[in-house]
């Protein structure tokens, strides 16, 4: 499903974000990325949904080498990936319904199908009564849930989430992880970057600990967390 071979990412100005990353994530896996701020978690996710280009190495997703992907093919590639952005990236002028529906509209789905599916997903994230609100009228946690709803609405093969519980209270955080589990149970691969160690411990999923651009640990539960 996902393979990274000796991936390096150096930003303009010589800042190393990732160093010699090699890893494999199988189809249907649920993986947490942990590590301190600036460790390279977000950069790794960005390489996966092609918001950043790698400096060196190879990234293969869905059997396609992202470096060789033609520019016009990138939108179609991204349609298989749902992304929960750290800064939400909601369309400011669109209401909750339209933000979520956008991911289906680009696929050319019918109105009736869009309406039904969007409301179903909004119920999952507990925002079915706020569907007419624009993002600026929502709290940070609610905006994050809209972002999550948009990421999962088209049942993507790969779901990437960057700090999805960062703005949520424990109850909503648990709800979101439950949604991720549901998506994962249906066959989607899920990769979540988080600081929430308690959540990672509780779930007992595969965890990649990144620090200073390198994978320091790849384990079901990190040894240091257990101690």
């Amino acid at each position: 499903m996902i393979q990274l071979f000796h991936v390096n990412k150096v930003y303009d100005g010589g800042l190393w974000a990732l160093r010699d990353i090699s890893l494999t994530v199988k189809k249907g896996e649920f993986v947490f990325l942990t590590g301190p701020s600036g460790a390279g978690k977000t950069t790794l996710l960005k390489l996966l949904y092609m918001a950043e280009t790698l400096s060196d190495g190879q990234v293969v997703i869905f059997g396609k080498n992202t470096s060789r992907l033609k520019k016009r093919s990138i939108p179609y590639f991204r349609r298989n990936i749902g992304v929960v952005f750290q800064d939400f990236k909601l369309l400011r002028d669109s209401n909750v319904f339209d933000n979520v529906a956008f991911a289906l509209r680009i696929l050319g789905r019918k109105h009736s199908e869009i309406n039904g599916r969007v409301m179903e997903v909004l119920r999952m994230v507990g925002l079915e009564k706020r569907y007419r609100d624009v993002p600026e009228n929502l709290s940070g946690g609610e905006q994050q849930r809209v972002c999550i709803a948009r990421a999962i609405v088209n049942s993507p093969a790969l779901l990437l989430a960057d700090e999805p519980s960062g703005n949520l209270d424990p109850e909503n955080a648990a709800r979101i992880i439950d949604i991720f589990n549901q998506v994962n149970a249906k066959g989607s691969t899920v990769i979540v970057a988080t600081h929430n160690v308690a959540m990672v411990r509780e779930l007992g999923k595969r965890t990649l600990h990144i620090d200073n651009g390198k994978i320091r640990e790849d384990s079901t539960v990190r040894e240091s967390d257990v101690q």
């Binding site: 016009r72 939108p75 991204r78 349609r79 369309l91 956008f102 991911a103 680009i106 948009r150």
Partner: peptide
């Protein structure tokens, strides 16, 4: 707005 649309997978 354009950046978001691109990241979600909208074609040009």
């Amino acid at each position: 707005q354009i950046e978001i649309m691109k990241l979600i997978g909208a074609t040009n």
